[in-house]
């Protein structure tokens, strides 16, 4: 099953490599990974999506917690949560496709953030499956380049991950 694991860790050199190293060393899988400092500049928040059995996920959270740089770990998928991913996608846009892309982007609530006579770059935010759907709808023939940030997420309601 897919899990989203949020990690609060010291914003120190080498901390990220310990997390990434742990995943490869113990043969855990990484689907996506995103990391940036939080409002407290001494802390970074890392979000990793991974797929594994309950036993593997339990080991992942326990092993992450063992890292000295890691302050807190939570598996967001254990409770209600919101998740978002941002994608920028560059598309061949000429002739009739210009209008078609604009319409599709509107349906998906995307924004066109760069325009040239032959291309559009669309910015789209949502859960990962929505971004997948947008790519599928437009078809590979029109896609020039795709960049995705990986998943970020928060628990719903009062629940927070902080020290």
């Amino acid at each position: 099953m897919r899990h989203i694991i949020s990690v609060l860790m010291e914003n120190e050199p080498g901390a990220l490599s310990r997390v990434v190293g742990l995943f490869s060393q113990r043969n855990f899988n990484i689907e996506s990974l995103t990391v940036a400092p939080t409002e407290d500049s001494t802390l970074s928040r890392l979000t990793v999506t991974t797929i594994g059995s309950d036993r593997v996920i339990e080991q992942i959270t326990k092993q992450l917690n063992k890292l000295i740089d890691v302050v807190k770990v939570v598996d967001l998928t254990e409770g209600d949560h919101v998740e978002r991913e941002l994608m920028m996608i560059k598309l061949k846009a000429s002739g009739q496709m210009r209008a078609e892309i604009k319409r599709t982007a509107d349906i998906f609530r995307g924004q066109i953030i760069d325009v040239t006579p032959t291309t559009y770059t669309v910015q789209l935010t949502g859960a990962s499956d929505k971004l997948d759907a947008f790519i599928e709808t437009l078809g590979a023939a029109h896609i020039m380049e795709v960049v995705r940030t990986g998943v970020s997420g928060l628990s719903r309601g009062e629940k927070v991950l902080s020290i």
Partner: peptide
């Protein structure tokens, strides 16, 4: 050395 030893230390400091 921080990189080389990373999988076999409890922690390391530079």
């Amino acid at each position: 050395m921080i990189g080389v030893s990373r999988p076999v230390v409890k922690h390391s400091f530079s």
